[in-house]
Design a protein around this nucleic acid. Structure first.
Lengths: 341, 341
DNA sequence: CGTTTTTCCGTAAACGTTTACGAGAACACA
DNA sequence: TGTGTTCTCGTAAACGTTTACGGAAAAACG
């Protein structure tokens, strides 16, 4: 069934060494022989056994993306990562690498699963998402000397790895600027309660912008909750009950915004009329919600391509002539003005 | 860094054969020795090299899911598959199998990528989605003798593989029943133009139900278009221009429904008021759209678990004492009544 | 024609496992 | 004590590659 390099050798009456060299495009093989080998490979439908290659080379030729579904009650999942993965895989495929998506159960922080990938050497490098402020995964990987890159920043790991993040700080500030320009002074912020780094960045931008506009920061207008619809639903009434309720709310997450809007609706408050609502990370849900939610949109597919690029550049086997470099990039989020503010 | 079985053997002064047997829980090893081996494995932080195992055993201990993003313009992706994948991976993990998600570029039908997975033996089995009526992937896999299972049915491959599908036929019929019960007689159906099998099933159910109600089938009310928002947007006006326009439309796909509603809006037609709109496969988009779309909902996560189960049962290495069986299941879609009909 | 260089290829080891086989020791049994 | 059985372990081959090494043949050179 599956033909091996031995089959080719036997068929051509040459040694397996020569076959291998011919297939791998080494110089020390006659042009004629190479031709014959390639042809035989085609007719015998040969393709190299991955396990064999991996074992010999100590490389699996695949990159693992640790996909962690949100904890929460959502019946459907993250549409967020799909375009990112498309970009990722497109670039990796160019370099002959496979993309392995390692799924974890929702909620668990996949430290164990990561260990498994690393220790059983199932991938040549891993990609992390949902980076936390202090991220044990990053500590583990740096300590283990395993190559990786992250979607999102972190304070862990001495920044000795490539990372690509969105500029949540600027988005937070931009959101405030826009709302202030439209006459709002009491602006609330709702973010996830987890240690997720983008929550901090967002809040920093929010604070900075308010300060710049000379608006005092009211702790009552800042809330954090579980990063899903239920969390938004639960926490939004909190800010509404403050002594001086907000006229605008910025949500750090689409699901939380949806839950928040539900809570607002139950209080008889209509987003876009009685309350300005802005979302930091745009998803299709924001677009189709009614009213359509003003949101900040990431360029997911290009980000995937770019992060793959950066990861490759950090791998000795793929680094160009200039050698490995550590890169860190922060990409902008683009405002998509809709009807909710 | 990475300790091998040889390290353990040297450390304990025994042979690698014994170490391996101890680790793998074979009977012919002294309880004492086994204890010492396991302990040493722990302290030396040993875990087996996957490539080595795979090479020797001829099994990779991983299952590949061929994820194909929709062709189309959507900036975000399929939320559909994530919960399915969660269920899948949960069950596979129970049996010590990894889930490899193989991404393709949107649009290409991944025949090539599938070949690569099979020929380089990167997985022990593959899972297919978006099955077509005549599916060359299924033909290829059966002909190659490679184990697989499908999410969705097909006419290809002599049904010699496990498959799990949704009952689109019944959902189509149920949708018609419901609309007829609410007084509609002119009911349109919009489905994807591709050869996707569920499109046929849906239409069959639609036809059957209409016939049952004694309603003549009007070809002008049946349209098919590209399976995305643009497709729905383009094709909906078609059915509206028919001599006797419909009072209800059933969309086979959420994206097409969204596009269709946009077209309707531009014609001044309001779903839920001037037009009943039903969607066969529910997604979060249906829930948050305004008006919220009545839709038929799949139980994605359990489906993932179940299909994993079925696939495992068909693999000799995992089949229970009763031996391998080929299973085919069809799961119901549950009506979620909302505001659009 | 002798010497050196180049071209091409075969040999064999190695990667880290698993496992068939056999052998020694201990034990049971008559 | 002799024979058979059971327990436990070591040996070595095998999985499919890649690659360092060396050598024969061909080519180049004087």
């Amino acid at each position: 069934m599956a033909s091996s390099i031995h089959d080719l050798a036997r068929h051509l009456n040459i040694s397996i060494g020569t076959v291998s060299r011919a297939l791998n495009g080494r110089a020390d093989v006659n042009a004629d022989t190479r031709q014959r080998v390639l042809e035989a490979a085609r007719t015998l439908n040969y393709s190299p056994n991955q396990s064999g290659r991996s074992l010999r080379q100590g490389a699996t030729h695949s990159i693992a993306f640790m996909l962690q579904p949100h904890p929460g009650d959502q019946q459907y999942g993250e549409p967020f990562f799909i375009p990112f993965l498309i970009g990722l895989q497109a670039r990796l495929a160019e370099s002959g690498l496979d993309l392995t998506v390692v799924m974890g159960a929702p909620g668990d922080y996949q430290q164990e699963r990561l260990r498994r990938v690393v220790e059983t050497r199932r991938a040549d490098a891993v990609l992390l998402a949902w980076t936390r402020r202090e991220d044990e995964r990053i500590d583990y990987l740096t300590q283990a000397g395993f190559p990786f890159a992250t979607l999102g920043r972190s304070r862990s790991g001495a920044k000795s790895y490539p990372s690509l993040d969105l500029d949540f700080e600027k988005a937070g500030a931009d959101a405030v600027d826009r709302l202030v320009a439209r006459g709002h002074r009491r602006i609330a912020a709702v973010r996830p309660s987890l240690d997720l780094n983008f929550g901090y960045l967002f809040l920093a931008g929010y604070r900075k912008a308010l300060k710049r506009h000379g608006i005092e920061i009211d702790p009552e207008l800042i809330a954090s909750g579980f990063i899903n619809e239920a969390g938004g639903y639960e926490v939004t009434p909190q800010v509404m009950r403050s002594k001086a309720p907000p006229t605008a709310i910025i949500f750090n997450n689409d699901a939380m915004a949806l839950g928040g809007c539900k809570a607002l609706a139950e209080m008889g408050i209509r987003p876009g009329h009685d309350m300005a609502v802005t979302v930091i990370v745009d998803t299709p849900l924001c677009r189709y919600f009614s009213p359509a939610l003003t949101a900040f949109r990431p360029a997911l597919e290009p980000m995937g391509q770019r992060l793959a690029e950066m990861l490759l550049a950090s791998l000795p086997a793929f680094a160009g002539p200039e050698g490995p470099r550590i890169m860190r990039e922060v990409w902008p989020l683009e405002l998509v003005a809709r009807d909710s503010d």
